[in-house]
Design a binder for these strands. Structure first.
Lengths: 347, 347
DNA sequence: CTTGGCACTCTCAACTATAGAGTGCCAGCG
DNA sequence: CGCTGGCACTCTATAGTTGAGAGTGCCAAG
């Protein structure tokens, strides 16, 4: 009982936990009377008040105003998730139900989209999943198909079942056999090679010999670039933004607007997700910890997902700081595992 | 001066136009004094009041309350856009600027997305573009690539430069030559044929001869179905929803939420867009004309876009009833033409 | 037909009063 | 020494009040 880790008695910790639990449940500042009832310690409100005063001094809670109970501070939430929260992994039944949601016949991109929808659906928050980045994309095949006179459809297939296509405008009409020749050349020389290597070789080839296939090759290279770029850090897929409108702490139209615009611009969010991919395991940003003002009232819970033990992306949810961390964390964790497993099978 | 089309004097019409113009500009109910100043008719507010009273009786305008000036009713807007508004086509400079925004090297899907972004960007409203439906999709090529032991990547290319891919789980490992054989068979027999015909033939073939390629063929058929389905009425792409948060008449968080959820669900919007594709030319739904409650405060301006004279989709914008129709209509119109032209070149 | 005048209505913003919630502090008690 | 009830105090949220301002409708006169 006299053990005081972090300068805060066990009793105070328990009260902090109860307070935050309660606040997360109904969003109202918690007063001493409520807490006295809830804490199950048979203490009078006056006693609770003393403890709350201490907690306030330590920066874990604060009053919105003189007479309004206490709400957790960012620091309070931080302490809560770091040491007060006992997260237990999802029970196996739930995991199975979750697993059933993954349709294995989906192409990677669709799978990503479905996963973000899944996250938002289960948590009632906004779900987000980054596109997987593959350190090395393998050139698998390229195909050129004539569309009309001077238009050629180029299709590039890489490992992981990714397909990229784009339309090339050629300066003159290319015969089918010419196109065939070009694709044959590329397929013969490069199949199975790393895409960056292919890119470099192509670049060199094009400088050395200005072949008639230059245009085709340039396009192939462009597509390779596009895939590489996309695989580096292209973007993310988001779902369930509208869920965030339900929380009254975010009901300020301007905040909401800024938030949604940040989602659209992607840059800031992407940077945060990038931080998450480097940290190990579950990462949580609470309120202004992110450093981005638009996310001041929000928290983000993320987990990296991996294929064959290599981290290739991050997924998670964004919601108000006042989110049910204990419920959300295991879900995010499990989903990350399942997505990794689902993607692995595409290899 | 005594000509009274629709039971409403020319003077009254002019006033209605000025009133609506003014209301569209700043969103405040317009009073008699303001209108007297604005109308340029050298009439006293009292006179204006008489006319406004008539207009109110006819249902074109109404007062939010006793002392608040008048705002247009849906019927007022309807009369405004149908007979009061002289829409002049976009000047050629603007059209050229607009045309420059279309990047011809984009694949159709990207082009659609870019176009909806373009619409929302220019109008500061929400832009929406349906995916083009092609009455007849032509089978162009199919390709099967082995991914891992029992996984095959299938790629189906149709006319219009559309590429569909999906991953097949095979019950046993297929050799490269087997796959090659399958694709060769399909390509030889079906290239250039209508996709529905291909589908039917495949269905018959599969019943007759249970070949080893059944699985492959079934998948090809699935993909064909998918493309056909998508081309029938799949969906739409939307951009700039956040723009709608700027309008104070939509600032009610619940309305906004419902609106955004309608956008996500797509069904209702899709139904409206479908109506627009059948009517000729520019279509405008004002307020509750749509029949959907969530769109009560919104208007939708759409134009079908065509390829080779055949209407294949609709695009437009969604915004508050109080939108600058005179500016929006020509933009929607021109964009529809340009998108059609841009898509035509993919053929 | 148009106009100025005038009484009337309604909203909006500012202000006031009050009830309720919660605190901090203190003195007393085990 | 920690816990407790009591009490004065503070602050918010809500309702009610008021006055200014805007706009109307109507009327009688030009």
């Amino acid at each position: 009982m006299t053990e005081t880790p972090h300068d805060i008695s066990e009793r105070a910790q328990h009260m902090l936990k109860v307070l935050i639990d309660r606040y997360i449940r109904d969003g109202q500042p918690v007063g001493s009377r409520t807490l006295a009832r809830e804490a199950g310690l048979n203490l009078s409100p006056a006693t609770i008040r003393n403890v709350m005063s201490d907690l306030e001094e330590l920066g874990y809670i604060r009053s919105p105003h003189t007479s309004a109970g206490r709400v957790p501070t960012v620091q309070g939430y931080r302490f809560f998730v770091d040491t007060l929260l006992k997260v237990q992994p999802l029970d196996s039944l739930s995991v199975e139900q979750l697993r059933a949601e993954f349709d294995m016949s989906m192409a990677p991109k669709e799978l990503i989209e479905a996963t973000s929808g899944l996250l938002s659906g289960i948590t009632h928050l906004a779900g987000v999943v980054t596109l997987p980045k593959h350190e090395q994309a393998i050139f698998r095949r390229v195909e050129f198909l004539p569309l009309s006179e001077k238009r050629v459809l180029a299709i590039l297939v890489t490992s992981k079942g990714e397909v990229q296509n784009r339309i090339i405008a050629t300066e003159r009409q290319c015969s089918a056999s010419e196109l065939q020749q070009a694709s044959n050349y590329l397929n013969e020389h490069f199949t199975g090679k790393d895409l960056t290597a292919v890119r470099d070789t192509l670049l060199r080839d094009m400088q050395e010999a200005r072949s008639t296939m230059n245009h085709m090759m340039a396009t192939a290279m462009q597509m390779a670039d596009q895939i590489l770029e996309q695989n580096r850090n292209e973007g993310y897929v988001m779902a369930g933004q509208t869920n965030l409108m339900e929380f009254h702490e975010l009901c300020d139209i301007d905040k909401l607007r800024n938030l949604f615009e940040a989602f659209n611009k992607k840059r800031e969010i992407l940077h945060l997700l990038d931080l998450c991919v480097h940290g190990e395991g579950i990462q949580i940003f609470i309120g202004d910890e992110s450093g981005y003002h638009t996310l001041d009232e929000c928290s983000m819970v993320t987990a990296p997902y991996q294929i064959d033990g290599r981290i290739v992306g991050v997924l998670g949810v964004i919601g108000p700081t006042r989110m049910a961390y204990d419920r959300v964390i295991p879900i995010v964790d499990a989903t990350a595992r399942l997505l990794g497993a689902a993607l692995k099978q595409k290899d």
